[in-house]
Design a protein around this nucleic acid. Structure first.
Lengths: 244, 244
DNA sequence: GGCTGTGAAATGGTTCACAGCG
DNA sequence: CGCTGTGAACCATTTCACAGCC
């Protein structure tokens, strides 16, 4: 109810950035990169380039402080710098990628996956065929050596891209190695001790959501299957997170 | 943007299922598969196996109707069947996968990616080296033939796993081929006409969120690096039960 | 007694709309 | 005058807590 003075803001430091906002900051960075040839950009332009509502963008940026100029917009360079700083780009985190199959290889090469302060510090696999070979200039190590290698390389984040069967074991090993931030692409539930931040990405999930909507659409007797050239409703817009 | 009257409940058909619930139903199916040896499961058990709160699970299932028995729990088989039906598993959608690099290959082989009513109906690429070869029993076709092949194969969902540069073109081609549901792994913004459901998955996003939290943790002078059995403070932690 | 199903409260996030500044 | 920054309204989702049924 009552809105007391934000102690963080008052103290100069900033803190409570909503989770949803954090998730969009990276998108803003990409949008800014596209607009890097311009000096300034309005919230409207930036929002369009990032695929979000301009009010959302302004509110998001307001959590970082005041980096815009009224009547003008945001200085692209300044804002890029600031968002990068907030996202922790200056911290140069080192990432370990466990499981170098197709997915792992894709991740290692994914545009921007390892940019902005993130670098792959180590690659692991169990397959003796793969161990010892190189990808992106890094030698693939055996998972058995995970703990010592992670410590040596100063790994702070682990990515699990192994088949589901090995995921829990890998997570345990990462935790034992002192890694407290883990991203897993394994669909099963993995348990980690309190204090470890575990995030799960399910590649099949979004597809299933899509299939659900498509299925509904067919059932409710929508147009069979043909591309409606373009609707008159100015609803088109750039694709956001939610298509509907 | 506009608020229509709930037509589902009025028509006797299933009511509108919240987006957040849809996103969890697939996870429940997986949890049920794990528990398939048991006859029944309580909301508590199921929730633990799926990694969610039991109240959330009960509310979610309540949108599908009453499939539980008070004092007992849910019949695993019945519930599996019902969720599958709601997700549209009986519709047997056919999916086209465009871009068969590492990511595409990973997707084609991803556990559960193509289960539950989803089958890969076509693979496409531009690379002449790849076109003509086979993956998972399917011959890779050239993207130029996308429209005719998609129509012939009855494709209703398209997945874009190409480099960013080609993504918009592929999306256009899919739309032209009558595909109205598209999943893209390309980080850039893609625009599609109204009526097309476009979902974007950014593989780098979750990692960046993780890095943000990790970075914060380091800044706020948390424990350096060692797995402490730690803190009573209800920290983030996404996990289900204890060790399997 | 135990567990589901669900109103109601709490929380979190988005959008509106406009005051206020450059 | 244009555009940011932000209270306030709105909407979605989660969580609580308990009535009702087996």
């Amino acid at each position: 109810m009552n809105q007391q003075v934000d102690p963080d803001r008052a103290a100069g430091r900033l803190r409570a950035i909503p989770e949803a906002t954090v998730a969009r900051l990276a998108a803003y960075l990409r949008a800014l990169a596209v607009l890097s040839s311009t000096e300034t950009a309005s919230s409207e332009e930036l929002a369009a380039a990032a695929g979000v509502n301009s009010a959302t963008l302004r509110k998001d940026l307001s959590y970082l402080g005041s980096y815009g100029v009224r009547g003008v917009g945001y200085d692209v360079e300044v804002l890029t710098e600031e968002i990068g700083r907030v996202l922790g780009a200056h911290r140069k985190q080192r990432v370990a990628l466990v499981g170098v199959g197709n997915l792992g290889a894709a991740l290692a090469g994914y545009t921007g996956f390892m940019s902005r302060g993130l670098t792959v510090g180590a690659l692991f696999d169990v397959d003796p065929e793969r161990v010892g070979s190189e990808i992106a200039g890094l030698t693939i190590e055996h998972v058995d050596d995970l703990a010592p290698v992670c410590r040596r390389e100063g790994i702070s984040i682990g990515v699990i891209a192994t088949p589901e069967s090995g995921a829990q074991l890998v997570a345990d090993a990462l935790v034992a190695a002192g890694v407290r931030s883990i991203l897993t692409f394994s669909p099963g539930v993995i348990s980690v001790p309190a204090g470890v931040d575990l995030r799960r990405v399910d590649l099949a999930l979004e597809l299933q959501i899509l299939a659900f909507h498509q299925s509904r659409r067919e059932e409710t007797g929508a147009v069979p299957a043909d591309p409606a050239p373009t609707a008159p409703t100015g609803d088109i817009v750039v694709a956001g997170l939610d298509g509907s």
